[in-house]
């Protein structure tokens, strides 16, 4: 398993990172235990709408996992549980030993600073240039102007978009816009990267390019979880594939057998 990259964050961000940790009583993190655990998780959005019904899954540090399945199968819900956009109705979700279901609302920002989130729609600010989009996110999490000036070029280079730093989003292709979204997700140097349909709006060529960037980040030690229904691109990357159907994990390429529900 690849080791974690060195911490290039500023003093303030490292301090913020330390603050992100839950109180000692709730820290049960053990390097030997799985990084992410979904334990018989059920999510009900309303009495009639279920996001998940009894999903169980374990993910180790540094893994690259695809969640595949039809629209509405529950792939995005798995990611939303980790970002705490959704909370389990029953069951348990843990990230590095932290029970996310018991997390208080005011602890959510700190949780999200521990991960990078890549939305399907890019969520870029149209009136800001590429570098400003990344800088804006950094400023929002407390980085100083000096830190922003120092780190933004390096972050953009990580996703090969440095040469378009002064372009506006509407001047970029879909793939380039997605790379900016990935760059923005990297501002906290997260050990975990979550991407919800990152290739949903892209052609096959750009889709593969995005997957290669994610794979490269994974090789540097970042755990990458991708929800996708783009089976062709997923197959080309050749990583662990978890199939979700009807809110349940129906197969997992790691176990080479249908997952227990």
């Amino acid at each position: 398993m690849p080791s974690h990259p060195p911490d290039h964050r500023g003093k303030r961000q490292r301090a913020a990172g330390r603050l992100c940790h839950p109180p000692p009583r709730r820290r049960v993190s053990n390097p030997a235990s799985p990084y992410i655990v979904f334990e018989n998780v059920e999510v009900r959005y309303s009495p009639l709408v279920r996001g998940l019904c009894g999903a169980t899954l374990r993910i180790e540090r540094g893994e690259f996992v695809f969640f595949v399945g039809r629209t509405g199968a529950g792939k995005s819900t798995l990611l939303k549980l980790l970002t705490r956009e959704a909370a389990p109705t029953s069951g348990k979700v843990t990230l590095a030993g932290i029970d996310l279901g018991r997390l208080r609302e005011r602890e959510i920002p700190a949780l999200r600073r521990q991960m990078g989130i890549i939305p399907q729609d890019f969520a870029l600010l149209p009136r800001k240039r590429v570098w400003e989009n990344v800088a804006y996110a950094m400023r929002a999490v407390g980085a100083t102007r000096k830190e922003v000036r120092r780190r933004v070029p390096a972050i953009l280079e990580q996703v090969n978009i440095g040469h378009r730093a002064d372009a506006f989003p509407h001047q970029l292709s879909g793939g380039e816009q997605q790379r900016v979204a990935i760059a923005r997700a990297l501002i906290n140097d997260p050990p975990l990267l979550l991407a919800d349909e990152p290739t949903g709006n892209l052609d096959p060529e750009h889709s593969l390019e995005i997957m290669q960037i994610l794979a490269r980040l994974n090789e540097r030690g970042t755990t990458v979880l991708v929800a996708s229904h783009d089976v062709l691109t997923v197959a080309k990357v050749n990583r662990r594939i978890v199939t979700v159907e009807g809110g349940q994990v129906t197969s997992d390429s790691k176990s080479e057998a249908p997952a227990r529900v």
Partner: peptide, 16 residues
């Protein structure tokens, strides 16, 4: 969009 970005990257409630 700005609010969403801030929420995605983990900006505090106060900042938002």
């Amino acid at each position: 969009v700005e609010v969403r970005i801030m929420q995605l990257v983990g900006a505090t409630r106060l900042t938002i």
